[in-house]
């Protein structure tokens, strides 16, 4: 009799949350009731049937802004996480495989990068680079690969002592083949978990930067919605329909990726 596999509820919940946000991001044009750039004199409207989440200071529909914001936040989060994970994995492989001076250099670089406050460095980079999504992705990626590199390196050092790696080396297999065909597949679970957690980190950073006003002009992201809600003193004026939704969306998306990343990794 086959043993029934135990369901990993946190991963399922996380996946459902991520799935919903991915669907929203892909079909935002179809889902949004209005073009979020359209302005009107109906400013600061409370939620009603015409505007489910009310309107902002330009009379723009906040629900539509939020839906379009999902695409921007997910896009930046996922791309930045993919780059950070690729960079972190590559450095970990190089460091663990070659050891010696390469390992010392990469380990020192990782320690140095970890010592610098991430958000501060990212903010500095965004200010220096030309404003835009690409700059945000580059700036977030540059500062968020370190954790992945360090964790993977320690796992790879253990793998390097395994007989199958020693045999591959002994028969003269190419370094790149050993690294990417034999070592990398053995750490894919950790890579995926770290990748999922990197997305949540990148989304938080994007939201923080947009909240600070470092996003792209006119771009509807969750952080920028929050930025303008604060600029218009939304909290002190009780405009909850403006500032709460982006906070809830950011929290939910981060929770989704964290659940998948954290519990997915633990189960393995």
């Amino acid at each position: 009799m086959r043993k029934k596999k135990k369901k990993n509820l946190p991963v399922i919940v996380g996946s459902v949350i991520i799935g919903i946000f991915i669907v929203i991001a892909i079909f935002c044009e179809q889902l949004a009731p209005y073009d979020p750039a359209i302005t009107s004199i109906n400013v600061y409207q409370r939620p009603d049937s015409a505007h489910l989440l009310g309107t902002n200071d330009l009379g723009q529909d906040i629900f539509s802004e939020l839906i379009y914001g999902t695409r921007v936040s997910m896009l930046i989060g996922v791309f930045a996480a993919v780059i950070a994970t690729l960079v972190g994995t590559t450095f970990a492989l190089l460091s663990a495989y070659y050891g010696g001076i390469v390992d010392r250099l990469i380990t020192s670089l990782t320690s140095l990068a970890m010592a610098v406050p991430g958000l501060a460095l990212t903010t500095l980079l965004v200010c220096y680079l030309n404003p835009g999504k690409l700059s945000l992705i580059v700036a977030i990626s540059i500062t968020s690969w370190t954790g992945t590199a360090r964790i993977l390196r320690s796992r790879l050092l253990t793998l390097m002592e395994e007989p199958f790696i020693k045999i591959e080396k002994a028969i003269g297999q190419k370094d790149s083949v050993i690294m990417f065909k034999h070592l990398a597949p053995n750490i894919k679970d950790i890579i995926l978990s770290r990748g999922a957690m990197s997305v949540s980190g990148a989304m938080m950073t994007e939201a923080s930067l947009s909240f600070l006003g470092l996003g792209e002009f006119g771009e509807k992201s969750w952080g920028s919605i929050l930025h303008y809600a604060f600029f218009r003193n939304g909290v002190i004026r009780g405009l909850y329909w403006w500032y709460l939704p982006p906070i809830i969306c950011t929290s939910l998306a981060v929770l989704g990726f964290m659940l998948v990343g954290y519990y997915g990794q633990q189960n393995k």
Binding site: A37, T39, L58, F217, G218, H227, Y228, F231
Partner: peptide, 11 residues
């Protein structure tokens, strides 16, 4: 912020 908001309306 304010001038960017004005620009959004105009555009």
């Amino acid at each position: 912020n304010l001038r960017n908001r004005i620009a959004e309306v105009m555009m």
